[in-house]
Every structure is written in C-alpha cells, then in structure tokens.
Design a protein around this nucleic acid. Structure first.
Length: 484
RNA sequence: GGCCCCAUAGUCUAGCGGUUAGGACGCGGGGUUCUCAUCCCCGAAACCCGGGUUCGAGCCCCGGUGGGGUCACCA
C-alpha cells in the first residue's frame, strides 16, 4: 500500500525553514514510494492564525518545488484541509470519547488553573499539570451543565498507572510513565480542538500512514497514542527528526538566525541549492555524494538513512554551495534568474520611482539604489551618526532591539506595507517616548547606511521585511561590539 | 527541576566489531591569474568521559557528563 504523509503547519508568522525541512523529507518519502503528500493547515488557534500566513506557506513550499497532492487550495478526497473547517468532525469524535469515558468535561476556571500552576511551581512538584479536579464529576451532570451553556473544556482521561510506549522508527521504543502525561485539553472552550485531538483525528481520517515530524513532538506523542487507543485505531508509524539548530545549538530561532524561507528567496539563494543543503542536514546518500537535485533525492530516499541529531544550520556552507551552483549555471540562465528575481520590472519600477528625484544621470541609479540589494551593508561610514544627543549608546541599542521585537508582534505591520510600517512606527514612538526624528533617523541609518535616502517607509517596504530585519539585527550587533 | 531524545574534526556527515576513521563547508599553505574571485593541489583538524561484553570496540550494554526538546484552553 502506498504511504500517505502530510505536513501540518500552523499559519502563524512567516513560513519557517523548519517547516520546509520537514516538508522536504515527507515529500521525498511520498514520491519515492508512489504515495501521497498532503498539506493540512492547523489553524485551530484562532488568535494567531491568519490567512496571509497560510498563503505564505503555499508560496514558500512552491518556491522550493515541494508540491502537495492534496491541500486547502487544491482540494482532494480527504478535505477540508483546514482544521477550522472540520469542527463538526472534531465535535463528533469528542462525543465518542466522552461516551466511553476516555475524555471528560472540565469546568475549572482560568483563575483556578493559574492558581494551581502557580502553587505547583512554588512547591516545585515533580510533574506539574492538571490535578484532575473535574475528572470525578458525574458525566451526566457534566453534560447537563454543558447543555445549560456553562463554559468548559474537554480533557483527556489519562490512565492512572502504567507506561505508554511510543514506537519511533528512528529511535526505537520510547517509554513514558503515565505520571508525566498531563490530562491535556482536547477541546477548548471556544469549541475548537487543540492540536492533539485534531491531529490524531485528521491523520486517521486522511489515511496518514507515516508521521514524519520534528522532535519537539516526541514528548506529546504518548497523548496521541492514548487517543488512537481510545478510538480503537492503529497508530501510524512515527519518525521524529532532530530539530534544526542555531550556531549555539539551541533550536533555530529568529533571534539568532533568519528563519523565514522568504529571507533566503529575497537574498537570492537558489531554491534547488537551498533544498539540497537542507537535505544534507538530515540525510545522506548511500554513495556519499552530497550535491544532488530533488529528483535525485527522491530516487534515493530512504528514511533509515535519516539522522536524528539536531544539525546546526550553517549559512556559510549554504552560501558556498549557492555560489558553486551559480557558477555552474549557463550564463543565460543566470541572467534570466537575476532578471526574474532581483530586477523584475515590478521591483525595478518601484526602486526607480523612489530614486529618480535623487539622481541626475541614468547610470547613477545603480550605485544610488545599492541598499535595496544584498544582505549586510557597511555601517562604518555612518557609525558616528548613531550617537544621538541625550541618548546613551545602550539606550539606542535597546530601542532598536525593542523596535525589532515589537514590529514582529504587530499583526498589521506583518504585511510590511508602507502604511502599516508607518502606523506601527509612529505608535512605537508614542509608546516609548522617543521622538519620531530620532527613531526614523536610526532606522534609516541601520537599513540604508546613509543619512539621506528616499522616504523611509517606502524604502523599508521596498527593501522587504527580511532584509530590514537582518540589517536591524546586524546594526544592533555592530553597536554592541563597539569599544567604549 | 521532572520526563524524553541525542553525542565522529569548528560545522554537516560517512562508518553499521577488525578502516592509514572517508567526504563537504570553514581554516592554513602552494599553484594558475594584472588584482580579487574562481579553479587545481597539499595540509592541520574528530570518535565526550568511565566501566563492562568481546581475541578485538567509533560501532553493543551500563553509568556519568554535555547539548537539545518538552512540561498551555500554542502548534
């Protein structure tokens, strides 16, 4: 029977390199064995999910050439592929669990749970978690209270003794004592399922045979195993891959590395090289060759040759390979790629509009517009400009760091249009009490490396979110590294 | 901190009881070149520690150490 695999990202923020990494292995496995690769959107967090970041996931995966067989945008026999559109299905399954006692209603208030957690943390209990307060509740009473409209959640009833064994095909038997498995919420008070429930139900209903995902999920897999048991289902095969790491070996994070797939596209990495690089982080070819195409990967893919240690994502090696591949390309094709990705008419038009008033010869355009391109810029000529009257260097560093952090959280600013950046930036100045002149000046310096440039917000938008973010981060690092 | 996972050069990896421990990025040196880059050649650089098992352990077992993940009405 051909395998069925899936990638199940949640549409929050930018499309993550880690998602691409996991998608790649799922894709390769499905293609290698003539199976199906499903894209399912896990948007059960109403707070954080957005349609724009869902679109970004599609775009990122397609840029890499990891096309799926079934998904929200193209349908398929197992739809809908958006969890927010499958609420009835989860409701039905929750009822089944409720009926058999595998789950129970919980009416505890947020306050009680907060208090409970606080007490547990203070007492340093071994296994903090829900105290099963509502577990003893008569199901009939629970049902009546729910019917009367009382807010509640539904929790998983975990056995009180024994071990839960997870069979991981990459790691062997992994055993969890029942005491470490929390009585997780399966259905939230807003009627949405949590990841655990939705994930198990969907994988089953969609016929998923192999769950290939990140190691971060390993410790919640016993809950999933319990759910499969409760439904009387055979669990799929589990493969937990090591997580991509920063240079300091912590989990890859945007504080320390560009993690948006779009960053790599913006800066002109070749998608095929990027994919090749990701593949070698967790997989090695039988014959030892490490430069290969997606098709070659598919032809040789073997899950048993996937490594489980969390690899450090080394941008230097990626860049070296990218250069190699650019040199190996026929020059016509290189030119075509540059015209398409770097100097498209759309982008060129925008940059020319922003530059024309400031240049007097056609040929001036290229040197003038240099800050629209590339990654780092040379800050040395303007380093002195970062010294603001009445502000210490530490204050300048902190305010830039705060700006970077806050703009990330701002929902509207995520679109990174001229307007949204301006609105955010003005609000930022009001909140922090910094003058717009100060903040706008710092941003201009950090991103363009100049004291004079086209209108700031147009410029930031034209440079793009990922480039701006990178330059702000590098400015902060540069200022920090400066001698007293 | 509890639980779980992981452990070959700085980094990514090969190895699957007997190898001069292989490759790649990076680094050093040399050659080609007006410069730089490319390209080619050469080199330095690793089996975390301690116990076992075995005629023999990077490979198997146990312990330690180190790193990571996870402990939400987020995924």
């Amino acid at each position: 029977m051909p395998p069925v695999v899936r990638i199940a990202p949640s549409p929050t923020g930018d499309p993550h390199v880690g998602t691409a990494y996991i998608a790649l292995f799922n894709y390769a496995f499905a293609r290698r064995h003539g199976g199906r690769f499903i894209l399912r959107i896990e948007d059960t967090d109403q707070e954080r999910s957005s349609r724009s970041s869902e679109d970004a996931i599609f775009e990122a995966l397609r840029w890499l050439g990891l096309e799926w067989d079934e998904g929200p945008d193209k349908g398929g026999p197992n739809g809908p592929y958006r969890q927010s559109e499958r609420l009835d299905i989860y409701r039905e399954h929750i009822d089944r669990l409720l009926a058999t006692g595998a789950a129970y209603r919980c009416f505890c208030t947020r306050e009680r749970l907060d208090e409970l957690r606080r007490a547990q943390v203070a007492a340093k209990v071994e296994h903090p978690g829900y105290d099963r307060h509502c577990r003893g509740l008569d199901p009939a009473v629970g049902a009546a209270r729910a019917a009367a409209g009382e807010t509640h959640v539904v929790r998983l009833a975990v056995p009180t003794e024994g071990d839960i064994v997870v069979h991981d095909r990459l790691r062997g038997e992994v055993r969890f004592g029942v005491a470490q498995v929390d009585e997780q919420v399966l259905m939230k008070s807003d009627g949405f399922p949590t990841y655990h429930l939705a994930n198990v139900v969907d994988d089953r209903l969609m016929g998923v045979t192999h769950v290939i995902r990140g190691e971060e999920w390993l410790s919640s897999t016993p809950k999933h195993v319990l759910l499969y048991q409760a439904f009387g289902w055979e669990p799929p095969e589990f493969y937990h891959l090591g997580l991509l790491r920063n240079a300091d070996r912590s989990k890859l994070s945007k504080r320390k590395n560009p993690v948006s797939v779009f960053y790599y596209r913006t800066l002109g990495y070749l998608p095929e090289t990027f994919l090749n690089f990701l593949a070698t982080l967790g997989f090695s070819m039988q014959d030892g060759r490490e430069r290969f195409s997606l098709d070659e990967l598919v032809a040789n893919f073997d899950l048993s040759r996937v490594s489980v240690g969390g690899p450090v994502f080394d941008p230097v090696k990626l860049a070296a390979w990218n250069g190699e591949d650019m040199r190996a390309m026929p020059v016509d094709e290189l030119v075509a790629r540059i015209q398409r990705d770097v100097l498209s008419t759309t982008r060129l038009t925008r940059m020319v509009e922003l530059s024309r008033e400031r240049i007097s010869r056609l040929d001036d355009f290229i040197p003038f517009a240099s800050f629209f391109f590339g990654a780092s810029i040379d800050l040395r000529p303007v380093l002195g400009e970062f010294a603001l009257k009445g502000r210490t260097r530490a204050e300048v560093i902190d305010v830039l760091a705060l700006f970077l952090e806050d703009i990330e959280k701002d929902r509207a600013a995520r679109s990174f249009t001229k307007e949204s950046i301006e609105t955010f930036s003005r609000g930022f100045c009001e909140r922090t009490g910094w003058k717009t002149k100060e903040i706008f000046g710092l941003l201009r310096l950090a991103v363009t490396g100049r004291v004079a440039a086209p209108p700031l917000f147009d410029t930031l938008a034209a440079c793009g979110k990922d480039r701006v973010r990178l330059r702000l981060r590098e400015t902060i690092d540069t200022l920090r590294a400066l001698p007293e």
